[in-house]
Design a binder for these strands. Structure first.
Length: 421
RNA sequence: GUGGCUGUGGUGAAGUGGUUAACACGCCGGAUUGUGGCUCCGGUAUUCGAGGGUUCGAUCCCCUCCAGUCACCCCA
């Protein structure tokens, strides 16, 4: 093997593509029921969009982007997520002129230059939803419900839904300085990462997995105590709606999203058996993003679901449907001459909507029967010299082993009739 | 980007410093004249991730690289 797929990428081979189709079908069905329509945006965008949209200080932008200069000298980046692209399209095509909120979903590949690991790839696929143009907590609850519904329909159990509010540009700075005040004294005892986070994004310290850091930050003020009235009302409103809808959720005050644009609602759905990469869904409100990208202030909320991780979870719980490779009929030929007749017959059968296969390797009759059995094929139509001479085929029922001579012209009806039984 | 583990045929895997690299599955073919699923028989790795080095000799020892995997970081 000379050339292999690039690091962190995966081929989706024929034996697993049906799994993808299945998951994507469920996603589309949920979206239809919740009133979200598909949007397809380019897989690459101007780098500038992500710099502004995601935030220059984020890990994604600082070290994970696939950025290159195209032949026209433009800086282009393979999309690491699709909220920025969706918002860009929303503005570019003036979708704010249509009925609001704009409810959209997407399914497609994203690219991040990460080190691959369980549930983490350089090219991965997300199913995401964006609702642009509404402030209310009802929309927040709705998109969370859509995610829950998606997992429910797939049959996934043992998922944890965590929600939090990360505040807004009014209350977050207040909280930020409060937390810095609280931790400043013991800063030297924190891990290296946390010390660097102290100035840049002190809220992330609360999210540190390091046990010592967790201990040290245990008594730090919680963001929920510092929310402004508007954010607090929004957050309690969301909880009221979720509770009314019967959703099982947990508050997680340490839940902080990695992207700069999030405001108020942040949430995450985890499937713990996946190990370190247990987040299957992450999202939140991004009321500041649209203005950041050049639109007028517009509230919005969205999330993304990692499909590789969903597939992993489904595999773990044995919830993936086994693909049906069965075909109606296999047409077996005896020699080169009858092979032509077999091809002609196969074409007719296929035209009639019957899944049909034949031999392409010039195999002997015995090997063809073997092959037919592997699919498995319900019937085998054998065309030998004798049959060809009388314009008939030998129709063999592979379940019972019975075989009968049938007029070539009658074959389709005959098969249909037998399949009824 | 950092660290641990791993790297033998299509797959799962034995193995040893020195003639022909087990075995199982799969695949291909065969078991008298044109017929499957069971059984039996045969075939199927000039080669042990790549490149160097040590050695009379390396798949087995050393180094580098690459890849996979898991974890940190971060995230879907």
């Amino acid at each position: 093997m000379e050339i292999s797929a690039p690091r962190g990428t995966k081929d989706i081979l024929p034996d697993s593509s049906s799994h993808w189709q299945y998951v994507e079908r469920i996603a589309r069905e949920v979206c239809r029921d919740y009133g979200y329509q598909e949007i397809r945006t380019p897989v690459f965008e101007h780098t500038e969009l992500f710099l502004r949209g995601i935030g220059e200080t984020t890990d994604i932008v600082q070290k994970e982007m696939y950025t290159f200069t195209d032949k026209g000298g433009r800086s282009i980046t393979l999309r690491p997520e699709n909220t920025a692209g969706t918002v860009r399209a929303y503005l570019e095509h003036k979708l704010y002129g249509e009925s609001q909120p704009a409810k959209m979903y997407y399914i497609g590949p994203m690219f991040r230059y990460d080190k691959p690991q369980a549930g983490r790839f350089r090219q991965f696929h997300q199913f995401g939803i964006e609702a642009i143009g509404s402030t209310g907590p009802i929309v927040d609850a709705e998109i969370i419900m859509a995610a829950v519904e998606f997992f429910t329909r797939l049959g996934l159990k043992d998922l944890n839904l965590f929600i939090n509010s990360v505040g807004c540009p009014r209350c977050r700075p207040v909280y930020r300085s409060k937390i810095q005040d609280a931790l400043r004294g013991s800063l030297g005892e924190f891990c290296e990462d946390c010390r660097s986070r102290f100035d840049r994004n002190p809220m992330r310290i609360l999210d540190c997995k390091n046990e010592k850091c967790q201990q040290l930050s245990k008594n730090a003020p919680q963001l929920s105590e510092c929310l402004c009235d508007e954010c607090r009302d929004h957050f309690t409103g969301l909880q009221t709606v979720l509770t009314a809808a019967g959703v099982d959720y947990k508050l997680n005050p340490r839940l902080v999203r990695g992207l700069d644009y999030y405001t108020k609602t942040a949430f995450e759905i985890q499937y713990p058996p996946l190990g370190a990469q247990s987040a299957v869904c992450g999202g939140g409100r991004y009321d500041g993003l649209i203005e950041e990208i050049g639109g007028s202030p517009t509230p919005a909320i969205g999330y993304a679901i990692g499909l590789e991780r969903v597939l992993l979870a489904l595999e773990k719980q044995e919830l993936l449907p086994t693909p049906d490779r069965g075909i109606a009929i296999f047409v077996a030929a005896f020699d080169d001459k009858t092979r032509v007749l077999a091809f002609k017959l196969a074409t007719e059968l296929r035209r009639a909507g019957l899944a049909c296969e034949m031999d392409y390797l010039g195999r002997g009759l015995k090997a063809q029967l073997k092959q037919a059995n592997r699919y498995p094929a319900r019937f085998v139509a054998i065309i030998g010299e004798e049959e060809a001479a009388q314009n008939k085929v030998a129709l063999k029922n592979m379940l019972t082993g019975e075989q009968q001579l049938v007029d070539a012209g009658q074959l389709i009806q005959k098969i249909r009739a037998e399949m009824e039984d």
